[in-house]
Amino acid sequence: MAELKIRDGDYVSDGVGGAVRVKGRDELLQRVLFKLTARRSGFLFLESMGSTLYALGGAAASQRQGAAKAAVVQALAAEKNLQVEQVELNGDQLTVQLNYEGEELNLQLTVQ
């Protein structure tokens, strides 16, 4: 089953009244980005959905790297066959290296 493609918080139109669907690797990356950018406990019936990356600003500078890795691992724990290999926080830029069924996936996002 494919998921609907999201860009900038909106579904992407297919130009004929529907929405673009994503599959495979793109579907996984979209789901990962959603889980990392959504606030944990922000969904009434899905309290474990999302991450605590939004709270990094409240952590001491010396603890931010460890807190970022913990937040990423926690947010993605339910993803089967996905391992968090490395998390690097540089200022407000977060780089995440993942391994999905032997394939290396890298993504970057800005944390607020």
Rank of each mutant, 00 (worst) to 15 (best):
M1V: 04
E3V: 08
E3C: 04
L4F: 10
K5I: 04
I6G: 04
R7M: 08
D8V: 03
G9T: 01
D10I: 08
V12W: 13
S13Y: 00
S13M: 09
D14I: 03
D14N: 12
G18N: 07
A19N: 13
V20R: 07
V20F: 09
V22R: 06
K23A: 12
K23R: 07
K23F: 14
K23C: 10
K23P: 11
G24T: 04
R25P: 08
R25T: 15
D26G: 01
E27S: 06
L29Y: 13
Q30A: 03
V32F: 02
L33T: 14
A38G: 07
R39M: 00
G42W: 01
G42C: 04
L46S: 05
L46M: 09
L46P: 03
E47T: 00
E47F: 00
E47P: 11
S51Y: 01
S51H: 01
S51P: 05
T52E: 05
T52I: 00
L53F: 01
Y54G: 07
Y54L: 01
A55V: 09
A55M: 11
A55N: 08
L56P: 15
L56F: 02
L56T: 10
G57Q: 06
A59W: 13
A60I: 14
A61R: 09
A61I: 10
S62V: 02
Q63H: 06
R64V: 14
Q65I: 07
Q65A: 12
Q65W: 00
G66P: 13
A70E: 14
A70P: 13
A70Q: 12
A71T: 06
A71S: 14
V72Q: 07
V72T: 08
V73D: 08
Q74D: 11
Q74S: 11
Q74T: 14
A75L: 08
A75P: 15
L76P: 11
L76W: 02
A77T: 10
A78T: 15
A78D: 15
A78Q: 08
K80E: 13
N81G: 01
N81R: 04
L82Q: 06
Q83E: 14
V84Y: 05
V84H: 04
Q86F: 05
V87T: 10
E88Y: 00
N90C: 02
G91E: 10
G91I: 08
L94A: 03
T95Q: 11
V96L: 03
Q97A: 10
L98F: 06
L98T: 04
E101I: 05
G102L: 03
E103D: 08
E104R: 09
L107I: 11
L107Q: 11
Q108T: 14
Q108W: 01
L109G: 08
Q112T: 13
Q112N: 09
